[in-house]
Design a protein around this nucleic acid. Structure first.
Lengths: 122, 122
DNA sequence: TTTGACTGTTTACATCTGTAATCAATGAAA
DNA sequence: TTTCATTGATTACAGATGTAAACAGTCAAA
């Protein structure tokens, strides 16, 4: 039962998942390359994430260092599961079928997935 | 650029995608089997959906008949695309790989997907 | 030691969501 | 014709979210 991470919070997490620990300013520097947010906004998001225990803080003199407490993998598993459950009745096949029919899968994608599945069976 | 449909609204849409047009009461009767909502709540959701032009209304005497204006398929394509873009860099492979690694795919699932992909190549 | 730059904390505020209650119009029943 | 039930419209209200501004503590420079 991982705490829910909002869209905005997710952008912050992606930065921390790439490298951590980081200070608020360092996180903001990264985030700003994607989103047009102020330093204050990023700090608010970090606070909320810390309040939810999704990131941990470690005092470093006058400032904090932030690190993810939730692994990206675990998070992705949770949201993927939720997504597939809600929209495709919990089955991955209809999702893949849907993307395929909507022409969202290239021939390369298909080859890659087939390769992956072959691996899985071994 | 389809209007965003919230979770609660989505439950209402599923009913209308199954059969339409329906009156508010008919929709509520269906929805209540899933969610423990009052008739009022369902009506509010229908109004919001109508305001967003996601469902259309057609007067029928004293009441309205509601029908989806957005197709389920188009909606699913949109949210799937968005989901895959946001969390898996737009590639489906990592999503499937992820679900597979998280043991969310059974042997049957794998067989089904392989079958599907085989079809697609023909 | 005063001042300024940084950093976290507190407060703000509009919008969206979930979940209705209340109101008003009206057709049906008594 | 008065009354009740049905139905859409309006209003409500708390919590989540996006997006900060204002405040307060403190180390560093002057």
């Amino acid at each position: 039962m991982t705490e829910r991470i909002s869209d905005a919070e997710h952008a912050v997490m992606e930065v921390l998942w790439k490298r951590a620990p980081l200070t608020a300013t360092e996180v903001a520097d990264q985030v700003v390359q994607q989103k047009d947010w102020s330093l204050q906004t990023v700090k608010t998001l970090l606070s909320r994430l810390a309040a939810k225990a999704v990131v941990g803080t470690e005092r470093d003199g006058r400032r904090f260092l932030y690190s993810p407490l939730v692994e990206r993998d675990a998070y992705l598993t949770g949201v993927s599961r939720n997504f597939v459950d809600r929209l495709f009745g919990g089955k991955v096949m209809p999702l893949v079928a849907h993307l395929a029919e909507a022409d969202e899968l290239s021939a390369d994608d298909i080859r890659e997935i087939e390769e992956l599945l072959r691996e899985l069976k071994r």
